[in-house]
């Protein structure tokens, strides 16, 4: 019987929510979702389908040029993120010295005010997708008349089983409209 270790590991350097994570040996075939859940105990990023369809596992990659991008961690290896900086749902609100929530992000506050989610299992993916959208619109505003269609395009692939999406979409519209520079007349 072979006794070679089936798991090959190597160090991973990644920044999560602005904090450089402790460097440790991570299996080369580990998915990022498992890294966050099992190695970092950040469980807000959720396993839904494991094949990149439902997007409950979406996090944000922050690029050096200021762009932010959604990425699915259930189908992306942890080592893809070597040297990268990501945001997870745990990192959006500002927190006090005890780690308690002091202020929600605009997107989170709108989700709360609109009773957007029910079970909330998909909420992390929606928070991240909506945040990426708001940040994109700050760079590239759209005419107000196209806002609903823009939201529909941006969030279409995110699945929710509880809510029928209505309160998510209305909240995202409110978050966009509450963020200056995201829409232009027309």
């Amino acid at each position: 019987m072979s006794t070679t270790d089936p798991i090959v590991s190597k160090p991973l350097h990644v920044t999560v929510n602005g904090i450089e994570q402790p460097v440790e040996d991570i299996p080369e075939q580990l998915m990022m979702l498992d890294y966050l859940n099992e190695y970092r105990n950040l469980t807000g990023t959720r396993f839904g389908c494991g094949i990149g369809v439902c997007r409950a596992c979406t996090v944000i990659v922050d690029h050096e040029d200021g762009r932010s991008e959604e990425i699915r961690t259930c189908i992306t290896g942890a080592h893809y993120f070597e040297g990268k900086s990501i945001r997870t749902v745990e990192g959006h609100a500002t927190r006090d010295e005890n780690g308690d929530v002091a202020k929600l992000s605009e997107v989170q506050q709108q989700f709360l005010d609109h009773f957007s989610f029910q079970c909330s299992y998909c909420a992390p993916g929606f928070v991240n997708a909506a945040t990426v959208l708001v940040e994109r619109l700050q760079r590239e505003p759209v005419p107000r008349s196209q806002l609903e269609a823009t939201i529909s395009d941006a969030l279409e692939s995110h699945l929710c089983r509880c809510t029928g999406y209505v309160r998510y979409f209305r909240a995202v519209r409110a978050a966009v409209l509450a963020t200056p520079g995201t829409t232009v007349e027309g």
């Binding site: 075939q29 998915m31 094949i51 990149g52 259930c74 189908i75 992306t76 290896g77 893809y80």
Partner: peptide, 8 residues
């Protein structure tokens, strides 16, 4: 491959 493909 492990980073971008193996998940599926």
């Amino acid at each position: 491959y492990l980073n971008s493909c193996a998940g599926c």
